[in-house]
Computed example of a mutant assay.
Amino acid sequence: MRSITARMFMTLDGVVQGLGRPDEDTRGGFPHGGWGPRYNDDVMGRELAKGMAAPGDLLFGRRTWQDFLAVWGRASDGNPFSAHMNAATKYVVSRTLDDVADWPNSTLLRGDATETVAGLKARPGNDLSINGSAALVRSLHAAGLIDHYTLLIHPLTLGSGTRLFEGPAPLTEYELTGSVTTPKGVIIAHYTRR
């Protein structure tokens, strides 16, 4: 059985919306887009690269897949993250997309997210990782399908925006399996479900 790791960039108050740039996700009138890049540094880059060292497939919700396609799918900049994203098998969970052929190595998973991902997880293959896709992570967490979290907790609060867990989340215990603090104050915490 495959494992699923959710990698989430978040603020101290749990906001996961609009990390990368001002126009990334303005839903709900979110005015704080682009809060994350000023905290990037070499330590964070090395830690994220460790996640790319082992073979693995990517799992996306529709919105995040479309955003990553626009940013990473067209990149030919020699960046190892671009090369990793473009080469990886990408599974896209969506009820509305008709096709995912715009980004090579993408496979559409139609229907209910928890059912389709549970079926994918049960099949042999590489482990799966989710970058972003908060709504997908919440639904998979509620179904007990998330095995590991890597949380990149940034030293700021925003006061508004989509949070990793909005409303009640089921009781689930995790063990801290490692952590690193970057020079810019980001805590990178790795958790495994008990």
Rank of each mutant, 00 (worst) to 15 (best):
N86K: 15
R62V: 12
V117L: 00
P80D: 09
R46M: 08
L58G: 08
S76R: 13
L152R: 10
Q17T: 01
T162A: 14
R63F: 02
G78S: 12
R163F: 01
R123K: 15
T64F: 00
G159E: 09
Q17L: 02
G56S: 15
A169H: 10
A143V: 04
N126Q: 13
M44W: 14
G36D: 07
G20V: 10
R27N: 11
A49H: 15
L97R: 05
F9G: 05
K121D: 09
L140I: 06
A101R: 14
L128A: 02
R7G: 06
A169R: 12
L19E: 14
I153Y: 11
P22A: 13
Y191D: 02
R46D: 13
T26H: 13
D102G: 14
L97Q: 11
D99A: 14
G45T: 13
G34E: 06
A142E: 10
E115V: 06
S139E: 14
R194D: 06
S3N: 06
L136V: 03
G125I: 05
S82E: 04
G73V: 08
H148T: 08
K90D: 08
D42L: 15
P168T: 12
L120T: 10
L109F: 02
K121F: 02
L120N: 10
G159T: 12
T96G: 08
I130E: 07
G14D: 09
G132L: 03
L48G: 08
T5R: 15
V100W: 00
K90T: 05
I188E: 06
I146G: 00
D57M: 05
R193P: 03
A118M: 03
A83Q: 13
R62M: 10
G56D: 09
W35Y: 03
G111L: 02
S106M: 04
G33L: 04
Y149Q: 00
W72C: 04
P124M: 12
G14A: 03
I146Y: 00
A134E: 07
D41A: 08
D57V: 07
L97W: 01
I130Y: 03
A75Q: 09
E175Q: 10
V71M: 05
N79F: 08
G161D: 04
R74Q: 15
N86Y: 07
L120V: 07
L59A: 04
